[in-house]
Design a protein around this nucleic acid. Structure first.
Lengths: 138, 138
DNA sequence: GCCAGGTGGTACAGTCTTGAATTAGTTCCA
DNA sequence: TGGAACTAATTCAAGACTGTACCACCTGGC
């Protein structure tokens, strides 16, 4: 059977929508908007606004907004970077780490609820396939 | 090896972003915004605004806007539904079908460029896994 | 040191999105 | 037939998003 790229793409798209949608209530209770969550979850790996924008593929101006909100909520703070005085190093507060972990758990739980339908081998398989497809075009 | 749901979710998320981003230029040449494309691609299966909103999980008000744009661009038209005079049946024009097919091809090409890195068996596998995970929670 | 060209982050204004209210049509029951 | 309750689609105003312009700072060459 031929596997159509567009069809797979649509399937995948829909899966993510459904999962995100199922979690949005819980995220709200934690005090996070969806977009803010992405930023919060990525900060540890990409601690500067410009890096966040690149990693999450969102405009720099949007990062400014989300970071402002997250700072206002007490989830992170800005510090001047010693290496480069233009940069703002973003640092998670304890509350921020807690919120991130709770949100990630909620998300993982929902995704796991779906992953649970497939075998452990399939999960490993899926991970391998996605990683392969994510590599930058050679 | 344990496979973490949150991690898989993030991988998947990123893959879709990358693919969509890679295609947005081409979509622009066809004359489609990203969001409009989703509507255009779904119209054949869900020919009423309310159905589109449900299928694509976007607000009805947004569907109204995208449909208005697509109509203005000559890609579809509205007709009163004979069965229920409240409903607007959406019909693709020839230009609309052509645009949809071109856009789907572009998207499939980009996705395929990545699918090509994995074996045909893996593709079938991926499709099966995604379908399983997409089923409504029992 | 000084300048030119470049990058990091933000502000603002215009655009896009969408919840709530609205209008139109349907259904059903008395 | 009349009206209450419902659904389809739209409008509109408020809020979210982001392209552009901007300022601060960095880097390299002179």
């Amino acid at each position: 059977m031929a596997v159509d790229g567009a069809q797979l793409w649509t399937l995948n798209q829909r899966l993510l929508s459904v999962v995100m949608d199922a979690c949005s209530t819980e995220l709200g209770e934690i005090g996070l908007e969806t977009k803010e969550f992405f930023v919060l979850a990525e900060v540890a790996a990409s601690p500067y606004p410009a890096e966040l924008a690149a990693a999450l593929m969102i405009p720099k101006a949007s990062v400014t907004v989300y970071v402002r909100n997250l700072v206002a909520k007490g989830f992170m703070r800005r510090e001047i970077d010693d290496e480069d005085l233009r940069r703002h190093r973003l640092i998670l507060t304890d509350a921020g780490e807690a919120a991130r972990d709770r949100a990630l758990s909620a998300l993982a739980a929902e995704f796991d609820r779906r992953l649970a339908r497939i075998t452990p081998q399939d999960r490993t398989e899926l991970r391998r396939i996605l990683l392969e497809m994510l590599k930058s075009p050679q």
